[in-house]
Write a protein that binds this DNA or RNA. Structure first.
Lengths: 343, 343
DNA sequence: TTTTTTATGTAAAACGTTTTACAAGTGCTC
DNA sequence: GAGCACTTGTAAAACGTTTTACATAAAAAA
């Protein structure tokens, strides 16, 4: 039983393969009569067109590759879900490019566009996975590409994310509103613009409140729970301690709370903790985590929509898409008065 | 600047395209001299072979599709990571088949093998995504396929998972060992063999201890935190309450604990809670969760290895691969004495 | 020297589609 | 009845590789 191809359907139906193809792809091009016959024969024979052949001919793979540090990350998982949904609805498939942060892998996956395996790239990284020729990267030499959550800084590449700066301002203002003056920060990877923008927002909010930023209380993390634990321990041994900690990811915030509680500190009694991301588990830790929720699925979906438009030749309306974030107040932050009372 | 193809390299080098192809794929087939020239020209021109064309010719897409209910799930994310790593090392790419449990989507993704988009399937579902012809499914009419964590029950399909029955026995024995006699269970989807096997293991362990299973305390969930919350609330209003709850997923256990604590019950003081899966967050909830850890990445990696062997014509050594689970004892379970004391 | 093997290169077919350019038939208009 | 437009169908080229079968030259064996 060799595989059934378009020829078999043509033979079965008594028409040419061109007609079969038209009947399938281009209904108006053949008579209803013929179309019915072809469809029936195709169904009967269980014919599934070979997508490779079609892609080769049309120079469209119908795939996109999403380059992302870690699928297993709560945030990324949701983003991919958003991408996947849109992709399926538009007839595309998604190739997974899990990089663990490795630049080499980022480039390998990006190269799939060069070998016609993928028509475009959704890039959740701050690095451009292509070498710049002399004179720098030129956008129209590049395959269609969209930046999600991150920003490579290369001109002309659409970006979709929350307004990190404003989100950090909102987060900081929440803490300030509770009376906190002494706020520590655990950042993400400072190579990435998102983390830099958040820090920037934090500084602006502090400045606007007329408060100094204590650089002692700035710790550089990398989004993982372990980073939060380490940072928390480092902060706790300092003589002058902050009254609250703003973490640039929920995972770090959760690790941070864990370490604090382990050492006998009460959250939020002794220390308020604020997260960022809005992962589902933030609700379930104790105390539940106050955070800035990102519209993750929507970010993914928007990336996908823009990318498909790009692939199909429409240029995006705007290069920078900010999706709304949301301050979710839960139990891990409380007014400073309460703090002092306990001390 | 049209795309550079094998012809260009051939022209540039002054050899035939056959020679270029050999130089690239089949080093022994050409002289060192020629090979060097070809490689140099290819590099200089930035030649990347069109994978679609190669795949069409060789009838090998180099892709596999992993059909999975939800990438965003903590457990699945890790499994995919394991798959991805092995895939990359063997030169395969992975297509993502996110189904949200929909059978329709499972079939759509499975059909990628029919259209030559994928060479094989890793299936994390308990349903076969192909219609059975008269006479039932025959394994050698099917594309290469491996079952991960689940089992379709179709003969001849390799399965990789933990020994769910034994794992449930271990979990139950842990609770029994702490003195618990009254154990409630929140199951997963009972359509799936894994959940059925776990329940079976639970029953066996209870029976071995000479204890009855109280069917009132059996709740059917679907692995999500919300299911745990609902189940917990349902259990708490019953007159006779168990002293411990065995949840078939950590997510449910976490939801369960959350609901219990919300209603003023102490975990583990009033109620011990046991999970299943060993997701990273289990460490970070309060109290930290006792659970059965699955070797998720290894499960993924093994699925992938077996699938690639299958694709490449080697038949698997064994159809049923059990990977070792591990009982991770944390704070959410405690001896019954403590329970009674508080009451 | 002649014959046989080995090394290296190539022409051409094949993979399974899509699409262009053309042909033939049908009906309509004037 | 000629001219025209429209409808429907088809032959054949093209997409960019891999691979088979063969050719030639050089080296080895006789």
């Amino acid at each position: 039983m060799s595989k059934v191809g378009i020829k078999d359907i043509a033979a079965e139906t008594g028409v040419s393969i061109a007609t079969v193809s038209h009947a399938l792809r281009n209904p108006g091009r053949v008579s209803d009569e013929t179309r019915r016959k072809v469809l029936a024969a195709a169904k009967k024979a269980g014919y599934t067109p070979n997508r490779l052949a079609a892609s080769l001919r049309t120079a469209r793979s119908g795939n996109i590759v999403v380059i992302i540090p870690d699928v297993a990350d709560s945030l990324n998982g949701k983003i991919i879900t958003g991408i996947e949904n849109v992709a399926r609805s538009r007839g595309y498939s998604v190739l997974l490019g899990n990089t663990q942060g490795s630049e080499k892998r980022e480039r390998e996956f990006a190269a799939m566009t060069l070998s016609s395996q993928a028509d475009g790239i959704i890039l959740m990284s701050h690095r451009m996975p292509f070498s710049a020729p002399a004179g720098g990267l030129v956008i129209d030499k590049l395959p269609p590409i969209v930046n999600g959550c991150e920003n490579t800084g290369v001109d002309g590449i659409p970006c979709v994310s929350v307004d990190d700066r404003q989100a950090a301002i909102d987060a900081t203002n929440h803490l300030l509103g509770l009376g906190h003056r002494e706020i520590a920060v655990i950042t993400g990877d400072m190579e990435s613009a998102s983390s830099r923008n958040r820090l920037q927002g934090f500084r602006e909010a502090m400045q606007a409140a007329g408060l100094p930023v204590n650089e002692h209380w700035l710790t550089y993390g990398n989004y993982l729970p372990g980073d939060g634990e380490i940072a928390a321990r480092k902060l706790m041994v300092q003589k002058d301690r902050p009254t609250s900690i703003f973490c640039f990811s929920d995972e770090m915030a959760i690790g941070c709370m864990h370490a604090l509680q382990e050492q006998g500190f009460k959250v939020p009694g002794d220390m308020s903790v604020m997260g960022f991301d809005g992962i589902p588990f933030a609700r379930y830790v104790t105390p539940s985590l106050t955070t800035i929720a990102q519209p993750t699925e929507e970010i993914g979906a928007n990336c996908a929509r823009i990318l498909f438009d790009l692939i199909e030749g429409k240029s995006p309306e705007t290069l920078q898409t900010f999706l709304p974030h949301e301050l979710v107040v839960r139990e891990s932050t409380s007014p400073i008065e309460q703090n002092r009372a306990r001390k």
